[in-house]
Simulated assay, not measured.
Amino acid sequence: MDFNELLKVIILGIVEGLTEFAPVSSTGHMIIVDDMWLQSEQFLTKYVANTFKVVIQLGSILAVVVVFKDRFIDLLGLGRRGKAAQNGQGDLKLTHVIVGLIPAGVLGLLFEDIIDEYLFTTATVLIGLVIGAILMIIADIVTSRKPMVQTVDQITYKQALTIGFIQCLSLWPGFSRSGATISGGVLVGLSHRAAADFTFIMAVPIMAGASGISFLKNLEYFSIDALPFFIAGFISAFVFALISIRFFLKLINKVKLVPFAIYRIVLAGIIYVVYF
């Protein structure tokens, strides 16, 4: 086992875990460290690397499931309501989540090949980073008043659907799924924390579905020799996603979106300087 290769995949897992659910664009960050991938000569060939991306993303998804386990138990109607019921919660229904997923899910299926072929470039990611940052700043300015919806349990179907339509913007690489959906939630009257909760809950089925399809497409390139690297990447993504999600949920109502928007603009500047 090559230690340098192992270190690279651990770093990529850390980057994925820290950035997947924060509104800063994991794609933008992956571009910065992608040279590590391209320099890989042993196991992370082009196709194995595609499978690896799916594996580490699944680590991030698992972290969300762990953080919101009581919510998912309630949504699936399994067992008692647990902590959610004890806190007087549990009014969020699975149908709210489905309604929020429909717009991006439909567009994603219709335009998946076009997005993969034409939009995954450094230039398009730069555009997504900047425009997404502008949306986040607008969301904070427009909603400086007290939000009507303090918890995700108060969300309406209309709000869920509107957030779903705004989530479609995240199909543009670099825009950030969480950046789009949290901004959308805030714009329709949710508190930042309620919008973040709904965003993370929606992320699990849509990311799991996309990852599952991608994994099946690249399954033939799975290599037993690369298994230690997949495991290392998965674990690092899971651990750091767990840390990132818990920290972000405690922070978001205090700092809101503008600091993250500023960070995105700085990141776009760094990418521009490095690649152009």
Rank of each mutant, 00 (worst) to 15 (best):
P173G: 10
F240G: 02
I270K: 07
S236P: 05
G179F: 10
F240S: 11
S25P: 10
G13C: 09
S211Q: 10
G77N: 08
D74L: 07
L101I: 11
H96P: 13
K53Y: 07
D2S: 06
Y263W: 13
W172S: 04
G100K: 08
I114W: 03
G128R: 10
G209Q: 12
K8P: 00
S60A: 15
G164Y: 07
I127N: 07
F165M: 04
V67Q: 09
L216N: 03
S26H: 06
S214Q: 11
F230N: 11
I206C: 09
G108Y: 09
I134E: 05
Q39R: 14
L18K: 06
L135W: 03
M207F: 10
I231Y: 01
F120S: 01
K69D: 03
V64C: 05
I206F: 02
D153L: 12
H29P: 06
L6I: 14
M148K: 14
V97I: 15
P103A: 01
V64M: 07
M30A: 06
F230D: 12
L38G: 14
F3M: 12
D2M: 01
S144G: 00
T199K: 08
D34F: 00
G82V: 13
L107E: 00
S183R: 07
V204P: 12
A84H: 03
F175N: 08
L38T: 03
K46F: 02
V204C: 11
T19A: 11
L101A: 08
G179C: 06
E112C: 00
Q39S: 15
S178A: 14
G108T: 12
A160D: 01
I61H: 09
M136N: 09
D74E: 12
M202A: 00
H29Y: 08
D34N: 12
V9Y: 08
F21T: 04
L219D: 02
F238I: 06
F234C: 08
F276A: 11
E117G: 06
L38Q: 10
V99A: 13
K83L: 13
R71L: 01
D153E: 05
T199I: 09
F52R: 01
V66M: 10
S214Y: 02
L190P: 06
D116I: 00
A261L: 09
I163F: 09
W172I: 15
D70P: 03
R264I: 10
N87M: 12
I270M: 14
T121L: 02
T143R: 15
S170I: 02
L126G: 07
P103T: 00
F234S: 02
T156E: 10
I245R: 04
S26I: 07
T121Y: 01
A104I: 04
E41Q: 14
I231N: 00
G233I: 11
G269E: 14
F260D: 10
N50S: 11
T45H: 05
I14P: 04
V9L: 13
K217W: 01
L78I: 15
F120T: 03
L267M: 15
I224M: 13
F230P: 04
V54D: 12
S178G: 11
L38V: 01
E16F: 08
